[in-house]
Each structure stands twice: as C-alpha cells, then as structure tokens.
Design a protein around this nucleic acid. Structure first.
Length: 105
DNA sequence: CGGTTGACCAAGT
DNA sequence: GACTTGGCCAACC
C-alpha cells in the first residue's frame, strides 16, 4: 500500500456506480500528476474487489488495453463489471463516455 | 542515489 | 486517423 494508492482508493470510493473516471482526473484529485503510477497501482490492485479499478479508464474512454495491450481476461472481467453497473461498453470502449464521466472538480 | 518501467497524455509527424 | 516523441511522476531494483 503506497501513500498515493491510499488517496486513489479513497477517490475511487467517491465515484458513484455506473460512472467512470480517468487516470488523469484521479491523479489531479489526489494532488499529484503521476497518471502512470496510478496505472501501476491498479494493475497490482492489492485491494482486489474493494478497488473498482474497472471504473478507471483512459482519457479517451477506451478499455481495449488501457495503453493498448493488456491481458484480455482481466479486461473482459472489468467490462463485465462495468456493464453490471450500468456502463455501456462496446468494442472495448465506453459508450456515452462524456455522459458517465465523473470528475472530482 | 541513479536507472528502468509503466492499465498515461499531449503534441507532432 | 494511425504512429512516434518527449515528458510526466511514483514505485521497484
């Protein structure tokens, strides 16, 4: 558990179900600019089910391998979770992304 | 303490 | 619209 991770998890907890946010927004809200570090935290995901990393997407709203390449199984799982929460996902992309995007402002 | 590594981003080609 | 470049910052070795 890293200090940054704690902030990120707290922020994730504030994101309502059926909505998503971006690494950038998380970093910003966490008071840092380490988008990349957050990505690592998510993939390690020490808090497994308690950490809804599936609610975090790239700034362009794509899930098909956040950076472009990721384990399909992991990805598909997250997509399933998102759809369970009411998030429309198509072709590994978020539909109505701007509509369900949650910002911390 | 320096170098490598990202589930990234923005801008340029 | 797809690909490359440089920069960003935390975590790991």
């Amino acid at each position: 558990m890293t200090p940054l991770a704690i902030k990120v998890y707290s922020l994730l907890d504030t994101v309502p179900h059926g909505k998503v946010t971006t690494y950038k927004a998380l970093a910003q809200a966490a008071g840092t600019k380490a988008y990349r570090a957050i990505g690592q935290i998510m993939k390690h995901n020490p808090n497994a089910p308690a950490t809804p990393c599936h609610r975090v997407v790239a700034s362009n709203g794509s899930l098909g391998g956040f950076m472009g390449k990721t384990d399909k199984k992991t990805l598909q799982k997250k997509i399933d979770l998102l759809r369970s929460e009411g998030v429309a996902v198509k072709n590994n992309r978020i539909l109505n992304f701007s509509n369900i995007y949650h910002s911390f402002s």
